[in-house]
Design a protein around this nucleic acid. Structure first.
Length: 1029
RNA sequence: GCCUUGGUGGCGGAAUUGGUAGACGCGCUGGAUUCAAAAUCCAGUUCUUUCGAGAGUGUGGGUUCGAUUCCCACCCAAGGUACCA
C-alpha cells in the first residue's frame, strides 16, 4: 500500500508523465479525427491515378478478431497509406460476408434471428478494426446479407440463367439469341457448353415443341440450371452434408445415418470457363502455389474419347483416355458401379454378384472409396465389348476405382501401362498384354510416356508416344469410334443450399419449371420463419415460411395460402451458397450504394480492377476460382471491363498459436481372462500430471505396481494415490492377480492459453473454474507432489499449431491495443517475419517495437523535462545520410512487400539519429512520412506537433537523393581463400593495383600468409578483396 | 505418391544482382541509476578454443578466387491434392 502511493508521488514529481508517449490518448484522438474528417473516403472522380487495395471479405464470427486476422489488413493498410503518400487516389474498402452457417446454427440453438447475431458480431468487428487504425473508406461498407446488396446477387443469378456459352465465339451469349438459332436451324450447328444428353432437333421440330419442352431444352444450355445432383443426405438433420462432415458413413454432428440421394438443385456451369480460367492464370500476378492449386483443381487432361461397341447389343461405351496410343494394350474395360449401362449389359448369371457389389459400394462414402486405395475390388458383368481395331472381345468389369463423376465413368483398362489397371488385372487374373518395346512388365506397369516405343500394336508399331497418339486418334475418327478430347476434372458447381441464412433465389415454379422474377421487383427478401430447421417433411428451412409465394399479378411475395398455380406460385425453397455474395463484391465497392445499377459503367471504367488483393491461401479453390468465373461471365456480358479482377494477389501466412496442454492420466485395469483381456477405464475423477512426468507412466504389472522399486519413489506414491482413489487396496488384491496389470492412458488436453504464463505454469484456480468436470481435478506437480497450495507449480506442455478457437490458443488484439497501442500491434505483426510465411505468435517480442515507438517519441522530445523540441538547425551530413538511406530502403521494402525489414530499418534510423542527437526539422519531418503508413497514430500526433494542421495521410513521400549517400572511402573486408579475416578502410579513389599493394603491405596480410606467396589477388572495387594462396 | 513452399544462434528473423553470415528485436549475462522496484541507459551474447585462432546457414557432392545465395542427389517440416483413366 505504502509503496503504491510513493510510486504515484514519484511520477508526479518528475514531470515526465506529461510528455511521455501516451498511446491511448493519441490513438483515440486520431481515430476520431479520421472518422470525423472522412480522411480516407475515396472519390470516384479524380485526376490522380487510381489504386485499389482490397482485403479478403471477412465473415464476422462471434468470437471477434484474433491477432491472426489483422495481419493481412495491416499489410494492405500500409500499402494503401503508402500509395496515398505517392499521390494515388486509393480505394481501400471493407465490408462483411455476413451470410453464413455459424449465425444460422446459433439461431437453431437459441431461436435468435441470424440478422441480430450478425449485427452484434459486426459491431464487435468494427470496434476492433477501428481500434487498429485502418484507413478504410467505411462509406462504401457492404454486407452480403443486406437486401440492397443481395439484390445484385440475385440479379447476376438471373443474368446467368439468361445466358448460354457459345464455344464458337468463346463467350457467354444471350439465351434469346439461342432461341433465334433454334427457330431458324435447330441445334445441329450449335457448339455450346451444355448438358451431355441433348437430343438433336431441327427448326421444324423446335417449333412444334410445347412451351414446356422448349424450356426444358433451354435449361440444358443455361449457365445456371437445375439438375439432379447426388448429395450426402442426412434425414435426421434434414440437410445435405459436405464430405468432411461425414465420418464412417454417419454424420459428424449427432452420429446420424447418411445416404447418397439425388436432389434437384441449381448448378453453375463453371466448366464452360475451364480453359479460360486456366489461360487467365498466365495474365495475373498471383502466387505460384495458388496458381498451381487452381490448375490442379481444374485438372486439364488431353486425350481422346474412344467408343467401344458392346457385343451382341446396341450399346456403346464411351471412355476417355489420355493414352490412345496404348489402345492395343486394352485387355478389359472397367465401369463405375453407378454407370448407367451396368444394369443393361450384365448377363443373368452375373446379375446377383453385380447387384451385391453395387449395393456395397453405395454404402461407402466417396471419401472412404478414395481413402481406401489398397483394396482391389470388382465384379465381371458377363458382357464383352469389341476392340475397335482387332474386333476381339474385351470383358467388361465394374470396379469402384473408377469414379462415376470423372470422364464418362468408364475406362479402357491397359494393364501394361497403368498401375491401377495392372493391379486389377493381377488380382483377377486378367491377361496383361505387353505393347511396349523392350520393357519388362512382370513386376509393375510402365507408365512412362517419353521413352516409349509402341509394339504389338498393328499400325502403331515402332512409333513414339506422340506419333502413336496422333495416328490412333486419326484411325479412330476414320472408324467413327473416337476423337481427340480435352477433359477437365473441374465439375459444375452446385449452387443450392438447404439453409435459411443465405440469399433467396428470385425464382418461382410454374408447372414444375423455374421462372425468374423480373429485375424491377428485386430484391426478393428473405422471409421470416418460426424455426430455422428443415421442415418435418424434409423441405429446406424456407419451407417453414408462411409468406413465400409469388403473385404474378401483383408482382409481390404473398401468403402461401394464395397459391393457385394460375397466377400465384410457390417460390424456391433453397438459398444460395456462401460464395455467391463474395463473387463480385470487389466490383460493388466501387459504387456501393447505386440503387439503379450493380455499378455505373463510368465508375467501373475508372477503377477497373483490384490492383492489390491480400488474403489467405485457404480460398485458393473456392472463392478465388468462383469469383474469377463470375468476373469472366460479367466480362462476356459487357458489364465489367476486364476479365480478371485482381492484378496482383498476395497470400499472407497464417499466424500460429502456441497451444498449451495439460496431461490427463486415466488408469486402466487390464484383467487377464481366458482367451483375452478385459480393460476397465477408471475415470471418475480428472488427474493431471505435470509436463515432465508424463513419460514415466507405462505398463506395470499389478503386483509389481504395489511392490515396485523401479519407479522413482515420489512418482510411485502418486500412482498409488491416483489408483486408490478408484478402488481400495484390499478388495483390489482379492479381485486381481499378478497376471493383471495396470496401465495409464495419458492424453493431451488443450487448456486455454490465458491460464498459462510465460514460464508455462498453469493458473489452477482458473482452470478448475473453466469446466464443471474439472472442478475437483487433482494436479500432480513436477516433483510428484499433489498440488494443494499456491507454492507448487503445475507445468503445461506447449505446441505450435494453427490459431483457432477450438484449440484455445487464440490471442485477442484488444488486450495488446490496450496495453501497447495499435501502432505497436501494427509494427509488431509486420516485424514478426515475411508476410507470406506462417509464423508463431509470441507476445514476448512486442516490448521491442513498443520500446522503438517510445524512442521515436523521445527523439522529438529532447527539450527540458521531456518537452517537444525540434529545431531549424541545418542537419549534419551524417543525419542527411541516415534519412536518405532510410527513404531508399523503406521504399524498396514496400515495393517488395517486405514490411518486416522496414521495421528494422526504422529502428536503426531512430537509434542512429538518437546517437546523433538530431533535432533538425529537415530530417524529423520527412521521417514521419516514412513511418506514417506503419504507425499512423504517432506519426499524425508528431506531425501535428510540428505545426501542421492537415493530416499527414496525403503528404508526399520524401524523395530519395543519391547524393547524400556518396562515400569517399570504404571499409574493405579482406578475405583469404574466401574467408574474411580483417577489414581495412581504403579510399574509393584507389585503383585495383593500389588496393592490392596496400593490402599486401598490411602486417595482418603477412600474418595470414605466413610466408606463402599469394597465387592471386582479387579486387572487386567497392566490394571486397580476396587473396588466394 | 504428386505439386508447392521452407530448413540460418536459446527464439522471431536479416543478408536486394554470388562478395564482411547472424542486421534489427526478444531472451539471457554483467553494470549504471534507485532505499527498493518499474522504467531508462551502457556493455556483452553462433559454437569451439591451448585465447594464437578454428569451425559454422538441414545432409552429401559439384561449379567458383569466393556459395545462405547457382547446379545435382538426399533428409526433414508445413500447406495443397489424389484410385483423375
Amino acid at each position: 500500500m505504502i509503496s503504491y502511493f510513493k510510486c504515484n508521488f514519484a511520477n508526479l514529481k518528475v514531470q515526465t508523465r506529461i510528455m511521455s508517449y501516451k498511446h491511448r490518448e493519441i490513438e483515440v484522438k486520431w481515430q476520431k479525427y479520421w472518422a470525423e474528417n472522412k480522411t480516407f473516403q475515396a472519390s470516384n472522380t479524380s485526376k490522380k491515378p487510381k489504386y485499389y487495395v482490397l482485403d479478403m471479405f471477412p465473415y464476422p464470427s462471434g468470437a471477434g478478431l484474433h491477432v491472426g486476422h489483422p495481419l493481412g489488413y495491416i499489410a494492405s493498410d500500409i500499402y494503401a497509406r503508402y500509395k496515398r503518400h505517392k499521390g494515388f487516389n486509393v480505394l481501400h474498402p471493407q465490408g462483411y460476408d455476413s451470410f453464413g452457417l455459424p449465425a444460422e446454427q446459433y439461431a437453431i440453438q437459441t431461436g435468435q434471428h441470424p440478422a441480430i447475431t450478425t449485427e452484434t458480431n459486426i459491431k464487435t468487428y468494427r470496434r476492433q478494426l477501428d481500434g487498429i487504425g485502418f484507413s478504410f473508406d467505411w462509406s462504401r461498407e457492404i454486407r452480403t446479407s443486406d437486401p440492397n446488396y443481395y439484390k445484385w446477387t440475385q440479379w447476376i443469378f438471373i443474368q446467368l440463367y439468361n445466358s448460354w456459352y457459345n464455344k464458337d465465339s468463346g463467350k457467354a451469349e444471350d439465351i434469346s439469341d439461342l432461341v433465334i438459332i433454334f427457330n431458324k436451324e435447330g441445334n445441329d450447328k450449335v457448339n455450346a457448353s451444355a448438358d451431355e444428353d441433348i437430343q438433336q432437333f431441327t427448326a421444324v421440330q423446335w417449333n412444334v415443341f410445347s412451351e414446356k419442352e422448349q424450356q426444358e431444352i433451354l435449361l440444358k444450355y443455361r449457365l445456371t440450371y437445375l439438375s439432379e445432383t447426388e448429395v450426402n443426405w442426412c434425414t435426421a438433420l434434414g440437410t445435405v452434408l459436405a464430405n468432411d462432415e461425414i465420418i464412417n458413413g454417419i454424420s459428424e454432428r449427432g452420429g446420424h445415418p447418411v445416404v447418397r440421394k439425388k436432389m434437384k438443385q441449381w448448378s453453375m456451369r463453371i466448366t464452360a470457363y475451364a480453359q479460360r480460367l486456366l489461360d487467365g492464370l498466365n495474365t495475373i500476378d498471383w502466387p505460384q502455389p495458388l496458381k498451381d492449386s487452381q490448375t490442379n483443381w481444374i485438372g486439364r487432361s488431353v486425350g481422346a474419347m474412344v467408343e467401344f461397341r458392346v457385343q451382341s447389343s446396341e450399346f456403346r461405351i464411351g471412355v476417355f483416355t489420355t493414352r490412345p496410343d496404348t489402345v492395343f494394350g486394352v485387355s478389359f474395360m472397367t465401369l463405375a458401379p453407378e454407370h448407367e449401362l451396368v444394369s443393361q449389359i450384365t448377363t443373368p448369371e452375373q446379375k446377383e454378384a453385380v447387384q451385391a457389389y453395387i449395393t456395397a459400394t453405395t454404402k461407402r462414402s466417396e471419401r472412404e472409396r478414395m481413402a481406401d486405395v489398397k483394396t482391389i475390388s470388382g465384379v465381371f458383368t458377363g458382357a464383352y465389348a469389341e476392340h475397335p481395331f482387332t474386333k476381339k472381345p474385351i470383358p467388361i468389369w465394374i470396379g469402384d476405382y473408377v469414379l462415376a463423376g470423372y470422364g464418362t465413368g468408364a475406362v479402357m483398362s491397359v494393364p501394361c501401362g497403368d498401375q491401377r489397371d495392372y493391379d486389377f488385372a493381377k488380382h483377377f487374373d486378367i491377361d496383361i498384354p505387353n505393347i511396349f518395346e523392350s520393357v519388362d512388365i512382370s513386376e509393375e506397369a510402365y507408365a512412362d510416356k517419353e521413352n516409349t516405343i509402341i509394339a504389338n500394336s498393328d499400325f502403331l508399331n515402332g512409333l513414339s508416344y506422340k506419333k502413336a497418339t496422333k495416328l490412333a486418334i486419326y484411325e479412330l475418327e476414320k472408324l467413327g469410334q473416337g476423337k481427340g478430347k480435352i477433359n477437365y476434372r473441374l465439375r459444375d458447381a452446385v449452387f443450392s443450399r438447404q439453409r435459411y441464412w443465405g440469399e433467396p433465389f428470385p425464382v418461382y415454379y410454374k408447372d414444375g419449371m423455374p421462372q425468374m422474377i423480373d429485375k424491377k421487383y428485386l430484391p426478393i427478401k428473405l422471409p421470416e420463419v418460426e424455426k430455422y430447421l428443415p421442415t418435418e417433411d424434409g423441405k429446406p428451412p424456407l419451407g417453414n415460411a408462411e409468406v413465400w409465394a409469388w403473385d404474378t399479378k401483383r408482382s409481390a411475395v404473398v401468403s402461401n395460402q394464395l397459391v393457385d398455380n394460375e397466377t400465384v406460385f410457390s417460390l424456391e425453397l433453397n438459398t444460395m451458397p456462401g460464395w455467391a455474395g463474395s463473387s463480385f463484391y470487389f466490383n460493388r465497392y466501387m459504387d456501393a450504394h447505386n440503387e439503379d445499377e450493380i455499378f455505373s459503367q463510368k465508375v467501373i471504367n475508372y477503377w477497373k480492377e483490384v490492383d492489390l488483393y491480400i488474403g489467405g491461401s485457404e480460398h485458393a479453390t473456392g472463392h478465388l476460382l468462383y469469383s474469377r468465373f463470375w468476373q469472366k461471365f460479367l466480362f462476356d456480358k459487357g458489364i465489367v471491363p476486364v476479365d480478371e479482377y485482381a492484378k496482383k494477389l498476395i497470400n499472407q501466412g497464417m499466424i500460429l498459436g502456441t497451444s498449451a496442454f495439460v496431461y490427463r492420466v486415466t488408469p486402466i485395469i487390464n484383467k487377464s481372462l481366458r482367451g483375452g483381456q478385459e480393460s476397465t477405464l477408471l475415470n471418475k475423477k480428472s488427474f493431471f500430471i505435470s509436463f515432465n512426468l508424463k513419460n514415466n507412466f507405462e505398463l506395470i504389472s499389478l503386483i509389481d505396481f504395489w511392490k515396485s522399486n523401479s519407479f522413482p519413489k515420489h512418482v510411485e506414491e502418486k500412482i498409488k494415490e491416483i489408483s486408490l482413489y478408484h478402488f481400495d487396496k484390499d478388495s483390489f488384491l482379492n479381485d486381481y492377480s499378478s497376471n493383471d496389470f495396470i496401465s495409464f492412458a495419458i492424453d493431451d488436453v488443450h487448456t486455454d492459453v490465458s491460464f498459462v504464463n510465460a514460464s508455462n505454469e498453469l493458473d489452477i484456480k482458473a482452470f478448475k473454474k473453466w469446466r464443471p468436470e474439472y472442478k475437483d481435478a487433482i494436479f500432480i506437480g513436477e516433483k510428484g507432489e499433489i498440488i494443494d497450495g499456491d507454492n507448487d507449480k503445475y507445468i503445461c506442455g506447449r505446441e505450435v499449431e494453427k490459431m483457432s478457437k477450438s484449440k484455445y490458443n487464440v490471442v485477442n488484439p484488444d488486450a495488446i491495443c490496450e496495453q501497447y497501442g495499435a501502432d505497436s500491434l501494427r509494427l509488431y505483426e509486420m516485424f514478426l517475419g515475411p508476410l507470406e510465411q506462417a509464423k508463431p505468435w509470441n507476445t514476448a517480442g512486442i516490448t521491442g517495437v513498443h520500446g522503438f515507438l517510445k524512442k521515436l517519441w523521445k527523439l522529438y522530445h529532447t527539450g527540458a523535462g521531456g518537452t517537444f523540441h525540434v529545431t531549424n538547425k541545418e542537419p549534419a551530413a551524417e543525419e542527411w545520410k541516415i534519412l536518405h538511406k532510410t527513404i531508399k530502403k523503406v521504399e524498396e521494402d514496400i515495393d517488395n512487400f517486405s514490411f518486416n525489414t522496414s521495421v528494422s530499418t526504422f529502428m536503426i534510423a531512430i537509434n542512429e539519429l538518437t546517437a546523433q542527437k538530431c533535432t533538425s526539422r529537415e530530417i524529423l519531418e520527412p521521417l514521419l512520412v516514412l513511418i506514417s503508413p506503419y504507425a499512423p497514430h504517432i506519426a499524425e500526433e508528431l506531425w501535428n506537433k510540428l505545426g501542421n494542421s492537415e493530416s499527414i495521410s496525403t503528404v508526399a513521400f520524401p524523395k530519395f537523393e543519391e547524393i547524400y549517400l556518396v562515400e569517399s572511402s570504404k571499409i574493405y573486408p579482406i578475405s583469404f581463400n574466401g574467408k574474411m579475416r580483417f577489414t581495412m578502410e581504403l579510399s574509393l579513389d584507389l585503383s585495383k593495383d593500389e588496393i592490392e599493394a596496400a593490402v599486401l603491405a598490411h602486417e595482418k596480410t603477412q600474418d595470414q600468409l605466413q610466408g606463402r606467396t599469394p597465387k592471386k589477388v582479387i579486387v572487386v572495387l567497392g566490394k571486397i578483396v580476396n587473396i588466394v594462396g
